[in-house]
């Protein structure tokens, strides 16, 4: 059974890489779109709303296929599987994340903005110094959940030929069918370990953000 682990761990590297890149893209998009939804400009609000609803309303796997099979035909360029995967995962979870950003910014009590106005902070300072630090703390648990969902979502990249842990599992399986349960048992355990670690990481940030606020 242990001989299965090295090739699977090798595939896990790709999985982790996709996860990491996608989280980064998703985080940037979540904030951009989250603030876009709160913008004063109708156009900005409209455009971000369309983005969010389209990517939340269709499937991740459909988006993945679209980026990998359709987009290259439309643009007439080759898009590597890795880029397509990061693009789809980032855009998809960025859309979900933007709802978290928006709702948490709105959830900061109005009195905080008012106190910041009374102290004559500029709109930018109010957001940066007063609203965001408090909203960030509220975002963390939801971001933690999304992070786990994203990690699970990366397993789909195997379907666009990226050689991640699932792909490696399928290759191993094709050489020895009797090992199928062991192979996928391992993969489940590996995912669980990573998910557990990510959860711990978010908890750490949550604790740090909660300083002084028993």
């Amino acid at each position: 059974m242990w001989h299965l682990l090295p090739p699977l761990l090798d595939g896990m590297k790709t999985t982790l890489l996709v996860t990491l890149y996608s989280i980064a893209v998703a985080l940037v998009l979540a904030f951009a779109a989250g603030f876009g939804r709160l913008s004063k400009s109708r156009t900005v609000r409209g455009v971000t709303l369309v983005y969010v609803e389209v990517f939340r309303g269709t499937s991740l796997l459909v988006q993945l296929f679209w980026m990998y099979f359709a987009l290259p035909l439309l643009l007439d360029v080759r898009i590597p599987a890795m880029s397509a995967a990061v693009l789809a995962l980032g855009l998809n979870y960025g859309a979900y994340g933007s709802e978290v950003v928006r709702s948490c910014v709105l959830a900061v009590p109005k009195g905080q903005t008012e106190a910041a106005i009374a102290l004559n902070l500029t709109p930018r300072q109010r957001m940066r110094r007063i609203i965001l630090p408090q909203a960030w703390r509220m975002m963390l648990p939801a971001f933690g959940n999304l992070q786990i969902e994203l990690l699970k979502g990366t397993s789909l990249v195997y379907l666009i030929t990226l050689s991640d842990v699932t792909f490696r599992g399928m290759v191993l399986r094709s050489s020895n069918m009797t090992e199928t349960p062991a192979i996928f048992g391992w993969i489940l355990i590996l995912f669980f370990i990573v998910a557990f670690a990510l959860t711990r990481l978010i908890r750490f940030f949550e604790r740090r953000a909660a300083v002084g606020r028993g």
Binding site: P109, G111, Q112, Q134, G212
Partner: peptide, 21 residues
Amino acid sequence: HRVRGKIGMVFQHFNLFPHMN
């Protein structure tokens, strides 16, 4: 911003910033 500098306010619900000491 300029005129507001001459005015200060204390609120019913304090509105202290909870993330700052």
